[in-house]
Computed example of a mutant assay.
Amino acid sequence: MRKEGENLVAEVDGVERSRVPLHMLAGVVVFGAILVSPALIGALAGAGVTLTLLDRNGRFQARVDGPTAGNVLLRRAQYRACDAPEDIVRSLLVGKIANQRAVLMRALRDYGGDYDAVVRQSIEVVTVRLAHIMRRVELADETVERMRGSEGEAANLYFSVFDHLIRSPDAELRWRGRSRRPPLDPVNALLSFLYTLLTHDCRSALEAVGLDPAAGFLHRDRPGRPSLALDLMEELRPVVADRMALSLINRRQLRARDFETRDGGAVMLHEDARRTVLTSWQERKREERTHPFLGEKAPLGLVPYLQAQMLSRHLRGDIDAYPPWFWK
C-alpha cells in the first residue's frame, strides 16, 4: 500500500487493485505481511486515520496513530464515571441481552417451522429466561459485580442454543461451546475474527469522539486492553458479528474446507475465506437500520460512532443516561 497524491493505492504484484481518497477512510486494517510505505503511514497519521496491523489470523500486532485527540475535560469525566459505572453498565447489558434475545427470536421466525418441538421449546425457554435477566438488570439496584454475573448467565443461556441456529450440512461447522486464544473449531475461529474487526471499529469510534478506549466500565481495566471498546461492542456483537457468522455459514458461503487446523489445535480461516468474510463485512456495514434513540436511519457501520457519541453526550451531562442500540 502506498500514497499517491491524496489517495491510498493498494497494489498486488505491482498491479493496482484499489484506490481510495484519504478523506474517505475512517481506519485502515492490514492483515499479514503487507508493505506499507512510510509516506502513507505519515499521511494516515496526519489525517487522523488509524492504521492497525494484525497478523494473518487477525491477532493484534500494532497500531499507528497521529497526535492524541480529544477533549481533556471529556476524558476526565470518563475517568470519574469509572468510579461509579453502575448506570452505564446497566444500559450496556440491557442492550446486549435484548439483542441476544432478538437474534434467537429472529431464528424462530425464520426457521421455526423446520424445528422439532423439543428444539423450538428449548429456544423459547431461553428467550423467556433472557427477558427475566434483562428485567432484573434493568430494574434491580445491583452492583457491577452482580451485573457481570447476570451477563455471564445470559451469555451461557444464549450460547447453549446457538448450535440450533446453524444450518450447515458440514459436521465440522457445529457449535460445541466458546473457545478462544486460540479458537479450537471453525465457528469459534469465525466469531473471533469478526469480533476483532468489530473491536477495531469500536476503538476507532471512541477515539474519534475523544474518549479513552482503555478506560472501560463493564470490562475491568487491564494494561494493553481496550476495555471501553470491548464495552461498546457488547451490545453490537449479537446482531453485527454473530448474525453475520450465521449468515455466512447458513448460506454456504463458508464451508468446512475454508478452515485449517494448525499445530496445537488452533483453527484458522484460509486466505480466500478471509477475503469472503471481509467483503461480506463491508457489505453488512452498508445496510441501514433506524437508530432507536435518534429515530433516523443510519448504516450499521456508523452505529459504533453514533453510540460513542451517545456515551460522550451522557458523560458531558447532555443526556440523562446512555441509550443502548436495540436491533429490530
Results as ranks from 00 to 15, higher is better:
Glu234Val: 00
Arg289Gly: 08
Leu44His: 02
Arg167Cys: 10
Leu218Ala: 12
Gly112Met: 14
Ala10Tyr: 11
Glu151Cys: 03
Tyr158Cys: 11
Asp170Met: 10
Gly42Trp: 03
Leu157His: 04
Val187Ala: 03
Leu294Gly: 06
Thr196His: 06
Leu157Asn: 03
Leu108Gln: 10
Ser91Asn: 05
Thr276Arg: 13
Phe162Asp: 01
Leu232Arg: 00
Pro213Gln: 03
Trp327Arg: 04
Leu22His: 00
Pro182Val: 00
Val20Glu: 01
Tyr158His: 11
Leu254Ile: 08
Gly5Asn: 10
His164Phe: 15
Gly301Phe: 11
Arg17Phe: 10
Pro182Thr: 01
Thr50Met: 07
Arg313Ser: 14
Ala117Asn: 04
Gln100Glu: 15
Tyr79Ser: 14
Asp65Ser: 15
Leu74Pro: 00
His164Trp: 13
Arg59Phe: 04
Pro186Glu: 08
Val118Asn: 03
Ala298Ile: 12
Leu130Tyr: 03
Leu74Asp: 04
Gly177Arg: 12
Ala321Ser: 13
His291Ile: 09
Val303Cys: 09
Gly224Arg: 09
Ala171Trp: 11
Val72Gly: 05
Phe326Asn: 03
Gln78Asp: 13
Leu22Trp: 00
Ala43Arg: 09
His200Glu: 04
Ala47Trp: 03
Arg178His: 14
Gly301Arg: 12
Ala98Val: 10
Leu74Tyr: 05
Met1Pro: 08
Arg178Cys: 07
Val277Phe: 11
